[in-house]
Design a protein around this nucleic acid. Structure first.
Lengths: 229, 229
DNA sequence: GTCTATAACGAGATAGAC
DNA sequence: GTCTATCTCGTTATAGAC
């Protein structure tokens, strides 16, 4: 009986994975706005109503794809961090940035899904938050290591930012000085901005040697969060 | 006869403007991927084939919207620059950044059109390049003023970035030291990244006081391109 | 209980004849 | 420019296979 349940559960997982895979293909071809359950079902030789056993609605399928993308990106970042665990924090920071860029170049449509324009009529539920936070936690962790180890440099907080900085630090980096909270969040957004510009074509005819440019920018981001060069 | 032609030209311009306005409304509701000439025509009480007198294809309408958006953003940036022409370069830089953010918050769907995910099946033609460059020229101009006036500080170029930096400087900032080229381009991408994160909801539950956070980040971007604080 | 298939709904897009 | 016939879509109700 447990075998039968195991087999059923396995089949269910396989079909779920096949649905998501087909949906990702559709994502690449038509974009998230046009993701359609019927087209996914057609590609799998299923009937559209059968998909509702696996995803209660089209939006739930989208949510699953978003969570998968965040997790895939987070995993790539964590692997890069672990591979560079012997290096000083600034080098580890750069390695993680390059891993994020590498993931984005390898998964452009999933990148667009999570960091591109919102899908009209869709609002990501709170269940996406933990997956979305993974990459942020990796970046915070590197700064934390530097704070507990070789040291962190930071500029004094301007008065107008102090309340917000203290709130941010209390929320997600209670053990770090509040001076680092805003630069960290800004560096995170700026990292994604750099990658998005490359991915979405804004660097065409502007930046040629993208690797060298990005490595340098990532290094300056590391400095901006207080990591010693 | 010249009167008649003038009236005709005026009517044509008015209808063109009405079409773009309706298309922008559609953009806000359905997204760029689903922009359809038919829906635009319906909203205007026209027949879809009549639109082809004004825009040869859906892609041409999209291109016109993109150029308009870049121009609108560029104008906002230029106005902010001119309004702050008495202020020191760093303050002018921040004023321009805040104007860009203000424009984005006021025109989120046009922002998504130019800086968000690419529209599947659409490739922006070269005719969009001059409009897209306007905002960049404003930022470069501020750095140029600082270079010719109060002075600019910059770090030495790492060897691996020198060829690319010299190429970039020769392309769009021949009168500036090559050391500033890469930081300028990076700051431009990072500025858009910051704004995109706020606009697309990544700062939900992370940044509360968005104005203070952004002003601080813009100030640090100014420093990153060598403007004295 | 778990799944797939059929059929249908209301809404909307689309192609082509006229 | 108009009309119609035929597509698409998400979603649900229902029936039946395993």
């Amino acid at each position: 009986m447990s075998t039968a349940q195991g087999a059923r559960a396995r089949a269910r997982q396989e079909i779920t994975a096949a649905i998501k895979e087909a949906a990702r293909r559709q994502l690449a071809q038509e974009g998230a706005a046009k993701l359609s359950l019927r087209a996914v079902a057609r590609e799998l030789g299923m009937v559209s109503s059968a998909l509702y056993r696996y995803f209660p609605s089209r939006d739930d399928l989208l949510t699953a794809l978003i969570i998968d993308a965040y997790d895939s990106l987070g995993e790539a970042a964590e692997r890069a961090r672990d591979a560079a665990c012997e290096a000083p924090p600034a080098a580890r920071w750069i390695a993680v940035c390059e891993a994020v860029r590498g993931w984005a170049l390898g998964h452009p449509h999933e990148y667009a899904l999570i960091y591109g324009s919102p899908v009209p009529g869709y609002a990501a539920p709170d269940t996406t938050v933990p997956a979305a936070a993974r990459i942020g936690l990796v970046l915070i962790g590197i700064v934390r290591d530097a704070h507990q180890g070789p040291g962190l440099t930071y500029l004094p907080l301007p008065a107008e930012l102090r309340p917000e900085a203290e709130r941010m630090a209390a929320d997600f980096a209670a053990d770090l000085p509040p001076e680092t909270a805003a630069p960290l969040v800004a560096a995170w957004a700026q990292l994604i901005g750099l990658i998005g510009f490359e991915l979405f074509g804004q660097f065409n005819r502007v930046v040629e040697d993208r690797e060298a440019f990005f490595r340098h920018a990532a290094g300056r981001l590391a400095e901006s969060v207080g990591l010693a060069p």
